[in-house]
Amino acid sequence: MSMSPSVAVVGPGAIGTTVAAALHEVGRTPRIYGRTPREQLELRVDDDRILVPGPVQTSPAQVDGAVDLVFLAVKSTQVEAAAPWLKALCDADTVICVLQNGVEQQNLVTPYSHGARIIPSVVWFPAQAQPDGSVWLRAAPRLTLPDTPAARVALTALRGTRCSVELSTDFASVAWRKLLQNAVAGLMVLTGRRSGMFARDDIAALSLAYLREGLEVARAEGASLSDEVPREIVSAFQAFPPDMGTSILADREANRPLEWSIRNGVIQRRGRAHGIPTPISDLVVPLLAAASDG
C-alpha cells in the first residue's frame, strides 16, 4: 500500500465532510461521491472555514476505477442505496472504513463490498449539518479502529491530519460503549429535546436504568465494561452544551428514517438471544420504530 493511498469519501454529510476536510487540509483531497451535487464542501471549526473543492460526483458512472480506501459515511439506512458506489470503487485490494453507528457494520456492508476488506469504526466527534449545507464541527475529531492490517490503511491516510486515529486491541468493548451512548441518545427523539434534558433528575434516572440494561447485554456479547460506564455516559451528556443534538434527533426533525434498529433495536435483539430481559428496550424500540415510519 502506498504511503499516500487513493481515497474516496462516499456520503459527504456531517461525518464525511469532516473526514474529507481533514484530508484536504494536508494536501490529500479525496474523491467525493454523494446524492446531492455540490461545488464544494464546507467545514466550520471555531472561527475557521475549511473549503474542500468538488464537485461532488453524483453518478457511479463518473468513477474511473477502484481506490485503495473508501470512507463509507452513509447512515445504516442508506447502505443499500450506496451499493452502486461500492461496486464502482472497490475491488479485492480496497479497504472500506465504515463510519457508522452500531456494532453490526461489517454484517451490513459485506453483501455490497465486492471482495474489499471492511473495517468498522467508532466515531468520537460531534459534527452537525447546518441549514446552509455547511458542517459545524464542535470537538476535535477522532476515530477508533480495530488493530488489524486493514485498519492501518486508514491510519496511514489520516496520519498528520486533525482527525486522530486510535487502534484498539479490544475494539468490541469500545464499540459497545459507544453504542450505549448512542442508544440513550435515542431518548432525545422521544422528547424532541437536546442534551440539556439530561439535567432533569427523572431523565437521568431513566437513562441510567436503560444503560444498565444495555450494559448487561454488552457484557454478554463479550464487551469488558465497568459498572461505572452508565454513570460516565450520563455525566458526559450533562456536561455537553444544552443545545447539543445527535444525528438521530436531526433525522427525526427532518422527518427522515431513523437508525433505531442498529442503535437501540440491537440491544433488544441481542438481549433476547442471551435470555436477558430488556423491559426498557421493549418500550423504547417500538416508539422509535413508529417515529421512524412517520
Rank of each mutant, 00 (worst) to 15 (best):
N182P: 02
Q106K: 12
T156I: 01
P120A: 12
L99K: 06
V63L: 09
Q78H: 12
C97S: 12
A204C: 05
V95D: 03
T29L: 07
L145V: 02
V9Q: 06
F171W: 11
R38G: 07
A218P: 01
G271L: 05
E42D: 09
P53A: 12
P126L: 09
G265V: 09
S226M: 13
L258R: 08
A73W: 04
A291Y: 08
A151L: 02
A204D: 07
R177K: 14
T29F: 01
V95Y: 04
D251H: 00
R193A: 15
P84N: 04
P53D: 13
P126A: 14
L41P: 08
V266C: 00
F71K: 02
S247N: 13
A209K: 13
E39Q: 14
L180D: 00
S207V: 03
A218I: 04
R200V: 00
S195V: 00
S247P: 10
T94D: 08
G214Y: 00
I248N: 03
R219K: 13
V174T: 14
E259N: 07
I203D: 00
T77N: 09
K87Y: 10
F198V: 00
V135T: 14
A218T: 03
P146A: 05
A157R: 00
L158P: 09
A289M: 11
L288W: 01
S134E: 11
T110Q: 15
A81G: 12
A273Y: 02
P60F: 08
L23Y: 02
D46K: 15
Q106T: 14
V153H: 01
S76L: 01
L69P: 11
A157C: 03
Q78K: 03
G196A: 05
I267H: 12
H114Q: 15
L137W: 10
A116E: 07
P146C: 06
A8E: 01
R263I: 14
A81D: 12
Q105L: 03
P60G: 10
P241A: 14
R138C: 04
A250G: 05
T148I: 05
R38T: 08
A291N: 02
D170E: 12
V285F: 07
T110H: 11
K87E: 15
V266S: 01
P242T: 13
F237I: 02
L287Q: 13
V217Y: 04
R117V: 10
R212Q: 15
N101F: 01
I96G: 11
E213V: 01
A218V: 02
E216S: 14
R212G: 02
V63T: 09
L51F: 12
K87N: 11
A140I: 10
A73S: 13
S261M: 07
M3H: 10
R212P: 04
P30I: 01
G34T: 04
T94F: 08
